[in-house]
Design a protein around this nucleic acid. Structure first.
Length: 507
RNA sequence: GCGGCUGUAGUUUAGUGGUAAAACCUCUGCCUUCCAAGCAGGUGUCGACAGUUCGAUUCUGUCCAGCCGCACCA
């Protein structure tokens, strides 16, 4: 059985394998690396492309109701004002210099303690179901401890974004209870800024997109007018997005440059959004299984209603059990008609759809499944990585590292191996088969070393099959050995059978 | 961003105030009739920059990167 070590070691083993075999490198490594950025090596580029292609084929080409889009990475700055990202991505944070705690300024509340009309001090509390009540209790305790006489005025709760500079020094830290250690709120905008054109001034500021979704909303009318689409329909896009994360963590799970696969599925305002939502959630689950993620590692997390943005009708995340914990893989959000309405208002251009059947004009609602290619990439590595103990002929136990990648996404589908490289007739047949296969599939040819070593090499990069050309191939019936990665079983098949197998499994 | 730990070859590690080693990997040749065999040979390394020193991979500082914890995560 597979014995992937404890979770910490499993991540180390995967990072190490990714580097060793050319899946993922740290970005700019010769200059010491750059936190939050990664390069995909020869095999990684193949694997990533396969994930993208599978998604695009299944989401766009094989569906009649979804069309593709490729919008620009830098868009008009007003896009991000309308979408709420300029405001929403600026989370002011407050640090406590003593306790080293960090708080979101809009979740840290304070109030002056006013006795007989005079400010005697301040109290603070973190946002809760009863923030005002907590502050009131704290204020009463404060008054009692300081033995101040007089009438206590009701507290007035404000959050730290509203604190005046002179107040900040007087507000106690929730961690220590003592004033003087809190910093003023500092903004951490997660959007990368740049300047368009020669002038570097405020008027030329623009942003690298923090999500691809806005491209679909901004081009909504263009697609409706030209794409011959009818509700319900979706617009899908694959592309790079950028977020200046405070702390990139967990290898490629959270990075600053990443690739998204998003789709906006527009439905009528009268449609059963809950059903459409559920349909897309299960579509996404089915798709993840189709590229080899085991159901046992997948779960759902429905965001609690009270945590949702006001416009959101519901968000369900498909979670994946990574070695470092159960984390979000694919978010499927029912966003109402918020985004289109925002852009209609901000741009002054109508975003309505005229429905011929009902003769009604309305702003469509939307279901948004959004997933990161890099997160899927990491998930398939984590799910597929296994270290096995296998016995050789003499019964000695040795370790086999194998990457169980689905044939759909494996970077190499078949390795072609002549049994011996110093036998010309074997090499000739192998190379001929290799040439034939590589017109259609990603194939690898390897003749160096013992055949067992070559099998193991392919195991480690996730190649599902190896075919070995031996003397029977040349001297007898032309069949060759098909060696299967997961079972290590071998059988003899013909060339036609090999092509049929690939045709069925690689789609 | 804060705190702790860490940084030697592609990987995993040893080691030293006098410019470094092993295993595996990789490459070449020989051999090899199905699961990391053997033999011979080759490539490749002290995270970066300063300081102390006659001399720094080793000591000190700063930076960078990684891991863990906290906080953050539209």
């Amino acid at each position: 059985m597979s014995t992937p070590a404890a979770s910490g070691n499993l991540m180390e083993a995967i990072v190490s394998l990714a580097k060793r075999r050319g899946f993922v490198f740290p970005s700019s490594e010769i200059y010491g690396g750059l936190n939050g950025f990664f390069d995909y090596g020869p095999l990684g580029a193949e694997l990533k492309k396969n994930i993208r292609d599978c998604w695009w084929n299944d989401m766009v080409r094989r569906r009649d109701d979804v069309v593709g889009l490729e919008s620009s990475i830098i868009m008009h700055p007003k896009v991000w004002e309308a979408s709420g990202h300029v405001a929403g991505f600026t989370d002011p944070l407050v640090d406590c210099k003593v306790s080293k705690q960090r708080y979101r300024a809009d979740q840290l509340f304070f109030s002056p303690v006013v006795v007989d009309g005079k400010v005697a001090g301040y109290v603070s509390a973190l946002e809760s179901e009863n923030t005002a009540g907590e502050l009131q209790t704290l204020a009463e305790t404060f008054k009692r401890k300081k033995a101040i006489q007089g009438a206590l005025a009701p507290v007035v709760a404000k959050d730290m974004t509203e604190a005046k500079p002179e107040e900040i020094a007087l507000i106690p830290s929730p961690a220590t209870g003592e004033p003087g250690s809190l910093t003023p709120p500092r903004a951490f905008n997660m959007m990368f800024e740049t300047y368009v054109g020669a002038l570097r001034d405020a008027s030329s500021v623009s942003y690298l997109r923090p999500e691809t979704a806005q491209g679909m909303f901004v081009d909504f009318k263009n697609v409706v007018d030209t794409g011959r689409v009818k509700l319900p329909f979706g617009i899908a896009q694959i592309g790079k997005s950028f977020r200046n994360e405070i702390t990139p963590r967990n290898f490629i799970f959270r990075s600053r440059e990443f690739e998204q696969m998003e789709m906006e599925y527009f439905i009528s305002e009268d449609a059963d959004w809950a059903k459409a939502h559920e349909d897309w959630i299960s579509w996404c689950e089915t798709w993840l299984k189709s590229i080899g993620l085991p159901a046992s590692h997948l779960s759902r997390y429905a965001h609690p209603k009270e945590k949702l943005a006001f416009y959101s009708k519901g968000t369900v995340d498909i979670m994946f059990q990574y070695p470092f914990g159960v984390q979000e893989l694919w978010g499927i959000a029912a966003r109402g008609n918020y985004d289109l309405t925002q852009h209609a208002n901000a741009s002054g251009k109508p975003m309505e759809y005229f429905d011929e059947a009902s003769k009604k004009k309305f702003v469509p609602h939307v279901i948004e499944p959004a997933v990161g290619v890099d997160r899927i990439f990491l998930a398939v590595l984590c799910a597929g990585y296994a270290e096995e103990e296998v016995k050789d002929e003499k019964g000695a136990v040795e370790k086999r590292t194998v990457l169980r990648l689905s044939p759909r996404i494996a970077p190499v589908k078949v390795a072609v191996l002549p049994l011996l490289k110093n036998k010309e007739q074997l090499v000739a047949v192998a190379q001929k088969l290799y040439a034939k296969l590589k017109r259609k599939y990603a194939v690898f040819y390897d003749e160096s070393g013992a055949v067992g070593r070559r099998y193991r090499r392919q195991d480690e990069i996730g190649t599902p099959w190896c075919v070995t050309i031996d003397f029977d191939t040349v001297e007898k019936d032309g069949t060759f050995t098909l060696r299967e990665r997961d079972s290590m079983q071998q059988k003899r098949i013909t060339e036609a059978e090999l092509f049929a197998l690939l045709d069925e499994q690689v789609y």
